[in-house]
Design a protein around this nucleic acid. Structure first.
Ligand code: FES
Ligand code: FES
Lengths: 161, 161
DNA sequence: TTTAAATAGTACTATTGCGGTCCTAATTAT
DNA sequence: ATAATTAGGACCGCAATAGTACTATTTAAA
């Protein structure tokens, strides 16, 4: 259903929590108690985030994790990528796809473009924004829509030539 | 991995095929042979699309399906919705969510907003565009990105007040 | 130097969701 | 009447995912 896996969702929760104290080091247990996500799950998430270099891990006693860069510079897209690997909206859009109907499919390329558009949208939302509440009926959406329709008409022109 | 289910992907293929002959009535068998998607699967997809009123079904002998409205007016988002029901990027973003950490989760609202943004992007891509090839490195992406970053800085302002 | 606290890495299981199939009823042109 | 179709479910098996557990490694502190 065009959705992100739950673990990824949890990852954003964890990151959001850490973003509230960007400097401090938090260990897994601490994060568990504050986010109410099961300890093993938190642990798993933290490892993935560290591997993706969004977090810095501090091993040994008094260890834990801290943000690698400031919340403003961390995009939602980067968190998603950290957990889910490379993202494509459709199965077939991936490079190594072996879709059965691939031969007679004319829209694969287009899905790639669309994936990019969505990714770009997520790339431009930072963790910082995630922490503070967004305005639900923000002007932004209208603005976005306008930009998109402009882009569409332009493309239309390209296609017609 | 932030992906659309394969059936939805197939649905776009079916719709794209129909869009090439917007007037004609095609039955399931015809569509199967042209798209190379298995017959039962095609059948299933067609039913869903008809239920969502994207297609008109003609029952009985010589029956089949035809587009309910012109390709230009059919958005990718509407196709996705037809197959996958209401869309939300995260599990919890749905109304009837019973996420365990719901109580202590501060970002649920924001995920709703983000879902909306993505949806809007898909809302503005029509089936017509899906049929003709999009330019892969289109100017549009840059334009979109620009619009988004503008929107971000504006929001930043809102938050700081 | 020893101990305890913490992460790294990996392997495992259970469950859910999804893709795909099939069957019966209802409808309609011939 | 008959044949061709869609409507609407029920159904199953697989694969991906969520969640757990265990061992090795690292490091601060006693
Ligand atoms: S649907 Fe698989 S390649 Fe187009
Ligand atoms: S993660 Fe479920 S409500 Fe926020």
């Amino acid at each position: 259903m065009l959705k992100i896996s739950r673990i990824t969702d949890y990852a954003t929760v964890v990151m959001a929590y850490l973003a509230q104290n960007p400097v401090d080091i938090h260990n897994a247990k601490d994060i568990t108690t504050h986010t109410h996500i099961a300890l093993p799950t938190v642990s798993k998430i933290l490892k993935l985030l560290a591997k993706a270099e969004l977090l810095i891990s501090h091993r040994g006693a008094n260890g834990g994790y801290s943000l690698a860069i400031e919340p403003k510079k961390i995009s939602i897209a980067s968190i998603i990528k950290a957990i889910e690997g490379d993202v494509g909206l459709t199965e077939c859009a991936h490079t190594d796809s072996h879709c059965q109907i691939e031969a007679s499919c004319s829209i694969r390329g287009n899905w790639r473009v669309i994936s990019q558009i969505v990714l770009n949208a997520l790339e431009d939302i930072s963790l910082l924004e995630m922490v503070s509440p967004m305005s639900t009926q923000s002007v932004s959406v209208d603005k976005l829509k306008q930009a998109l329709s402009e882009m569409n008409t332009e493309q239309q022109g390209l296609q017609d030539e």
